[in-house]
């Protein structure tokens, strides 16, 4: 790292942290030097998506953000998702679908999908594509990643619809009772 002349404080994976940094340091470099190496350096110019993290609920490229821009924000990296022993639902689906070859793009893909699942209620193909359009995979041709994502989204949509449906039936039955 270059001479640290500044400090930056933000919530990283739920923990408040302060780091010494320089004005010119990229958020990606800071994260990786602090040990958060799940976030990958791919192109370094905001094209490939391997460095995707979530800042204040939105997927962003850590390579195109100065670390100083994260001041006071909430940043989440792939380390906040599942672990090797306990992968999260989407990570499990990726494994089951055989969607991981070299694996370099996967942390970014998982983070973009997380932003999608946490922000949207409608998981139509159009919206899902929009959230995933900033992540490149050079191995799989996307097909298996897409299958894994679709399975996860469909299951989540069904689970989300269930309580709502239960509520509606309850309401309509109580109405009927009146």
């Amino acid at each position: 790292m270059k001479a640290a002349t500044n400090s930056v404080s933000f919530t990283l994976n739920g923990e408040k942290k302060t780091f010494a940094t320089s004005p010119d340091e990229k958020l990606l470099d800071l994260l990786r030097r602090e040990g958060y190496r799940g976030t990958k350096y791919g192109c370094g110019q905001g094209t490939c998506g391997a460095c995707t993290v979530i800042m204040d609920g939105r997927a962003v490229y850590a390579c195109l953000l100065y670390a100083m821009q994260a001041e006071g924000r909430k940043v989440r990296t792939i380390e906040s998702a599942g672990t090797f022993e306990k992968p999260n639902e989407f990570q499990k689906e990726l494994i089951d679908a055989g969607a991981v070859q070299c694996g370099y793009c996967i942390p970014g893909i998982v983070m973009s999908a997380t932003a999608l699942m946490e922000t949207e209620k409608d998981f139509s193909d159009e919206i899902a594509r929009e959230y995933m359009d900033g992540n490149l995979c050079r191995c799989t041709g996307y097909e298996k990643i897409w299958i894994a994502l679709r399975r996860t989204l469909d299951r989540k949509a069904a689970a989300d619809a269930k309580p709502a449906a239960e509520k509606t039936t309850k309401r309509s039955s109580s109405k009927g009772a009146k």
Binding site: G46, A59, Y61, L64, S112
Partner: peptide, 12 residues
């Protein structure tokens, strides 16, 4: 705006 760059870029 939907046609500009990628999701991550549009977010910033």
């Amino acid at each position: 705006c939907r046609r500009i760059s990628t999701h991550q870029i549009r977010n910033v």
